[in-house]
Computed example of a mutant assay.
Amino acid sequence: MTETPDRMDAGRDVLIPAAHAGLAGRLHLTAPNAPVVIFAHGSGSSRHSTRNRYVASVLQEAGLGTLLPDLLTEEEAGDRQNVFDIPLLAQRLTLAEAWVHQHPEARSSPVGFFGASTGAGAALWAAAEPGTRVGAVVSRGGRPDLAAPRLEQVTAPTLLIVGSLDHQVLELNARAQTQLHCENRLEVVEGATHLFPERGTLEQAARLARDWFIRHLRSRPS
């Protein structure tokens, strides 16, 4: 893959109460009560994901806060069943959302979810939870089909970003889009495969995500 610049040079390490030991994360707040986007990483990935750190840096430059949490502890991640346990990952994402709103600088922050690969299934599952305050969802190379039982309950505006050469996932996203009743859009990045390693494709996906979050989170009352 092409090298992706890592521009996430600010923020702080945090521990989100969950499980037995808590979940490690990386928090970057741009301004008091500014929108915050919480990331749900794909299987086998973590808060150290180079691709998601890059996307986060693009959001930060636009004034959006970010939280990159590990949704599993190291011990839990060693069990492959947990990696694909979408309800468990969604529960942890919901806990992360609640933690953000308990932060003194983010109590009124509009929150969005950004999910990659299997993480997109968790993001959409969590977005369908009754009483959720999530204001927008973006899926990059995602598996929304993993949240199929709940797609009809998602109310947050949802953007699905898929590479044109990621044929199977593109088909899954097109099918999932027909199940969404919220405002939604499917954006196809030409020439991109599943992980968006081709030159310029990850940058394009990041810009699409940035614009979606700005449109839907900054318009929400804090």
Rank of each mutant, 00 (worst) to 15 (best):
T2I: 08
E3A: 15
D6I: 03
D9A: 14
V14R: 08
L15K: 13
I16D: 01
I16R: 12
P17R: 03
A21K: 07
A21V: 01
L23Y: 10
L23V: 04
A24R: 12
G25R: 12
R26C: 03
L27I: 05
H28M: 04
L29R: 11
T30Q: 11
P35V: 10
I38W: 10
F39M: 09
H41C: 04
H41W: 02
G42Y: 06
G44N: 06
S45G: 04
S46W: 06
S46N: 04
R47M: 05
R47V: 02
N52L: 10
N52R: 08
R53H: 07
R53I: 11
Y54S: 03
V58C: 06
V58W: 04
V58Q: 00
E61V: 01
E61G: 07
G63Y: 07
G65I: 09
T66P: 09
L68H: 08
L71K: 04
L71D: 13
L72P: 05
L72K: 01
T73C: 09
E74L: 02
E74N: 05
E75Y: 11
A77H: 09
D79Y: 01
Q81R: 15
Q81L: 15
I86R: 10
I86Q: 06
P87H: 08
L88M: 08
L88E: 07
Q91C: 14
Q91A: 11
T94D: 02
L95F: 09
A96P: 11
V100R: 01
Q102V: 04
Q102D: 10
Q102T: 03
P104F: 12
P104K: 01
E105C: 04
R107N: 00
S108R: 15
S108D: 15
P110E: 02
V111E: 12
V111R: 13
G112Y: 05
G112S: 00
G112C: 02
F114H: 00
T118A: 06
G119E: 05
G121A: 08
G121I: 08
A122D: 00
W125T: 00
A126G: 12
A126T: 05
A128T: 01
E129Y: 10
G135I: 14
S139E: 02
G142T: 14
G142A: 08
R143E: 07
D145R: 01
A147R: 03
R150L: 08
A156N: 05
P157C: 08
L159Q: 03
I161H: 10
V162P: 06
L165R: 12
D166C: 12
H167Y: 14
Q168G: 14
Q168S: 15
Q168R: 15
Q168M: 13
V169E: 01
V169H: 00
L170F: 00
L170M: 07
R175G: 15
Q177P: 06
Q177Y: 10
Q177H: 06
T178E: 15
Q179Y: 09
C182N: 07
E183S: 10
N184G: 11
L186N: 11
L186C: 14
E187R: 05
V188K: 08
G191L: 04
G191R: 06
T193W: 00
H194A: 12
H194Y: 01
F196Q: 12
P197R: 12
R199E: 14
R199N: 09
G200N: 03
G200W: 05
T201S: 12
T201N: 13
L202F: 00
E203Y: 06
Q204P: 02
R207S: 15
L208R: 05
D211I: 07
D211G: 02
W212F: 11
F213A: 14
F213M: 09
I214E: 05
L217A: 05
L217R: 04
R218F: 08
